[in-house]
């Protein structure tokens, strides 16, 4: 087998081999995903009903539903995003737009963020428990869980958003300056709308990580499977419910699969919502 010397689009044996290898990789990845999804759907779909989504759990989660966990999960995610989005956008703007003159600050912040992004989530959990729950006295609460998740998601959010901002061509800024636009107008009317795809990518990744999180939440937002009355109440996230049903409750497997299916659907819906919002924002400005 040798590579053909002839020019043009001649298909050689090596090309075919590479093509086959690529197709095989794609199929393997696709099959893996379908297997996971298939297993969850096969085990969980029969358990899902309106009552399952709207009822409180009983008998340690083997019976009843997951309504309190859904509410807690959404509240935790809400707190997380309410803190992480403004902070993340601000830091990304600083890094992408305002640190050209101060290289050292930018490098320092970026290094720390990349380091933080690689820290295992249980470390954030222990930090959250020590700082938010104990030092600030928030105890086991949705607030303390959401703040811990915000710390965890921030590095990811900032770095993705920064990449999005950097992808805006410099000619946009030069054009705006040539027209005499102020820095603020340039930012809100030109740069941010152009950077929306990057912002949404960061948001979607951050939401995914936050929704899937178990280790950081078990010591902060806690294990209580009741409807929270306020952000100061402890509330069990769906991911913790799935973990507990599959690892601590004999006979909880089917309910764990059903909860996992709900979590997947929730993630999908939130991603679609984020995409739709971004589309609307980009069109309106």
């Amino acid at each position: 087998m040798s590579i053909s010397q002839r020019p043009g689009l001649t298909v050689t044996a090596l090309d075919r081999l590479l093509g086959f290898a690529m197709a095989a990789t794609v199929i393997a990845v696709g099959l893996g995903f379908c297997w996971i999804l298939g297993a969850i759907v096969a085990q969980g779909l029969g358990q899902i009903s309106l009552a399952f989504l709207l009822a409180e759990p009983s008998n340690a989660g083997r019976e009843g539903g997951i309504a309190p966990m859904l509410v807690s999960t959404l509240l935790i995610l809400g707190v997380c995003l309410a803190i992480a989005l403004p902070l993340g956008l601000g830091t990304a703007l600083l890094l992408a737009e305002f640190t050209i003159t101060d290289q050292r600050l930018g490098r320092l912040v970026r290094r720390s963020l990349d380091f933080l992004a690689g820290v295992p989530s249980i470390v954030f959990g222990l930090f959250g428990n020590a700082f938010f729950s104990q030092v600030l006295g928030l105890g086991f609460s949705i607030l303390s869980g959401g703040l811990t998740l915000a710390c965890m998601v921030l590095p990811l959010l900032i770095r993705t958003t920064e990449e999005g901002l950097r992808a805006v061509p410099p000619s946009y800024r030069q054009g705006a300056a040539a027209l005499g636009l102020s820095q603020t107008t340039t930012l809100f009317k030109i740069i941010l709308p152009a950077a929306v795809p990057g912002l949404i990518a960061g948001l979607v990744l951050g939401m995914g990580r936050a929704l899937a999180e178990t280790a950081a939440l078990i010591f902060t937002s806690g294990y209580v499977d009741r409807f929270p009355r306020s952000l100061m109440d402890s509330g069990r996230a769906l991911s913790i419910h799935i973990f507990d049903l599959s690892m601590n409750i004999p006979g909880g497997d089917a309910r764990a699969a059903a909860s996992a299916l709900v979590l997947l659907t929730l993630l999908l819906l939130l991603n679609l919502l984020a995409g739709a919002l971004a589309q609307r924002w980009a069109n309106s400005s």
Binding site: L75, A82, L147, L231
Partner: peptide, 16 residues
């Protein structure tokens, strides 16, 4: 600490 974050939370506590 509650006071400082309260303004961000107003919308979320509505379901309490």
């Amino acid at each position: 600490s509650l006071g400082t974050v309260a303004f961000l939370m107003l919308g979320l506590t509505a379901c309490a």
